[in-house]
Nucleic acid binder design. Structure first.
Lengths: 122, 122
DNA sequence: TCATTATTACACGAGCTAGTGTAATAGTGT
DNA sequence: ACACTATTACACTAGCTCGTGTAATAATGA
């Protein structure tokens, strides 16, 4: 049993809680869905990770970092702002974004651990 | 600070790890994206939760439980099987599905904790 | 005011998603 | 073989997503 090597301290009594819990209502499922939808995109994942690493970055910085057009970056940043994941702050010409939603980092981290632990092969 | 009330034992040193980690490559991000896409859907979330609770269920049972047509359920179950999230087993007329991917339950559980802890309002 | 930079607004379009309806397949019991 | 049930295959479609290109907005400096 060589599982969770680099990802040990994830101490979630996962199945226990989920098992006892009554079936997700469509509404509850909808809430979860919204959360996962945010993370279900290549570009947004990289944006969010950049922001976890650097706390605060502006559109052009992110645009260079990801190698994508500013419009595309702005699109996603705004979507994330609409969902209260990010907040924006203007400083001169630049608009800086940072993460305010505390769900993002833990979920990102856990998912990364799990996928790296060869989630699918064993 | 009344946060993580019912979800205490989630001991992920989230930001620490993500912060040190080099920026996600498009490929890495793609892997994560695939994982989150699975969970980014109302119906699939309820299916998966049903299966976490009951270990093994057939199409018609799930169809009744979710109040959806068998075709719709079968569609999703098959997608989940293609992705190696579920496996199927035939018993007479019925085909029973169960979860084999170990990432699902922890992610579902963490997300549920986080969203219930009023992720967005605090 | 004017030129320049940074960001956003908006319309557009290719591509994917998820359910529907119909038809086919597979197993069961007579 | 036949009727019946459970599930899947397939084609179709409404709706959403995400990047693109063009144009507008906002701040800066001369």
């Amino acid at each position: 049993m060589k599982k969770s090597k680099r990802c040990v301290n994830v101490k979630i009594p996962s199945k226990t809680k989920l098992k006892k819990r009554p079936l997700l209502s469509p509404v509850e499922a909808g809430g979860l869905q919204a959360m996962f939808k945010v993370l279900a995109n290549d570009t947004r994942l990289r944006l969010l990770h950049s922001l976890v690493r650097s706390e605060e970055l502006c559109v052009s910085e992110l645009s260079k970092t990801l190698g994508m057009k500013p419009q595309a970056i702005s699109n996603q940043l705004q979507r994330l702002s609409d969902l209260r994941i990010l907040v924006a702050r203007r400083d001169g010409n630049n608009i800086y974004y940072r993460i305010v939603n505390e769900c993002i980092a833990p979920l990102l981290n856990l998912a990364l651990c799990l996928t790296e632990a060869e989630c699918r092969d064993n």
